[in-house]
Design a protein around this nucleic acid. Structure first.
Lengths: 190, 190
DNA sequence: CTATACATGTAACAAGTTACATGATTAA
DNA sequence: TTAATCATGTAACTTGTTACATGTATAG
């Protein structure tokens, strides 16, 4: 049910349409819970029916509907944060691929790493541009936004640095194709 | 279909049972694709039927079945890496909660951050212990494992550093409860 | 002997994806 | 006038979770 709380959060910050959320939310680097429009629209309908969000104003051009989180919705969001356990597990396809990368010949592995690096560098450049664009110390709401953006910055900077390190390891070291097949993971902590 | 390739990878490295995979895989910090045993067992059955893995040896005590990736399975894994697009999107509940944290009063937000910090520090300590335990330069397979572990180390170190930074921001700054509701995200790059 | 961990599986449900479907506005 | 983008929705399918179900070996 993470999606619904992400939506309540975004619609608490300021009114948005499903279309805004889908663009903003689905293909985003900042967002940590990807979702498609086909999942967002039904969820918005459900939230509205439960009174956790309401439509603001009339429908816009092309039937555009703008929603906002209600006080009951904000309480539901607070209850989720307070009363339910965070799930620390991750599903990250692009990273799983890196974990499997030792099965490819060195040249192909390096190409794969280079491609990922470009992707992460693109996200990082974008975040840095966003950070440069505002006076983030100006007011409390800007400071709150800044915290979430800072995670993204560190996250992608770390990816780029790590890919550079990994590339060097692959180049210098010997992850031989046809060599012994090494284990790709390590057991969990107790 | 990421799960099946994760399994092919793990079973290419060395033979394992479904039970091993579930323990190793599900609750793990290293693994970037969490899965439960109820998903793993049927997938193993499917992979075996398709000839991408085979049972090695006889059944062990308590009906234990040990599988290994076949050459066809390794080819399937290579084809996945070569011919399909990585999905760079992430779903990370614990982080989504941080993005929503501004809806809580400062005291509760700080407690939430402290709890997350403990969780991440625990993972980090474990990884550092694993790194200290071996001679990772010894052979090619150890170097391959080391690359994946290094990601985890940097990932959790970054989390801890960021939480410390964020805690300071929340403590010093003013993410006032009852104040103006700030936007929690930023649009995606073009 | 009994509790714990080992070990595998299935069934009902929830969540998420892909493809289908429709139509309005705007800019070239 | 036509292509792109805006804008919303549904249906069939796949993936993942929770709960149920069963039984074995081992350590105290």
């Amino acid at each position: 049910m993470s999606l619904r709380y992400g939506l309540l959060d975004l619609l608490a910050a300021e009114p948005k349409s499903g279309y805004d959320l889908a663009r903003f939310y689905a293909a985003s680097m900042n967002n940590v819970w990807a979702a498609k429009h086909s999942q967002i629209y039904p969820e918005l309908a459900r939230l509205a029916e439960e009174g956790l969000i309401t439509q603001v104003g009339d429908e816009g051009p092309r039937g555009r509907k703008t929603y906002q989180t209600t006080p009951a919705g904000i309480e539901a969001l607070r209850a989720w944060l307070r009363d339910t356990e965070p799930d620390y597990s991750i599903r990250y396809d692009a990273l799983l691929r890196i974990f499997c990368l030792w099965v490819l010949p060195t040249g192909e592995a390096l190409a794969h790493l280079a491609r990922d690096r470009a992707e992460y560098a693109r996200h990082l450049d974008y975040i840095n541009a966003v950070l440069a664009r505002h006076d983030w110390a100006a007011d409390p709401s800007a400071r709150a936004r800044r915290i979430t953006i800072e995670f993204g910055r560190r996250f992608y900077q770390m990816h780029v640095d790590w890919i550079d390190w990994a590339t060097e390891q692959v180049r210098v070291g010997t992850l031989q194709p046809g060599g012994p097949l090494p284990s790709a993971t390590v057991a969990a902590p107790a």
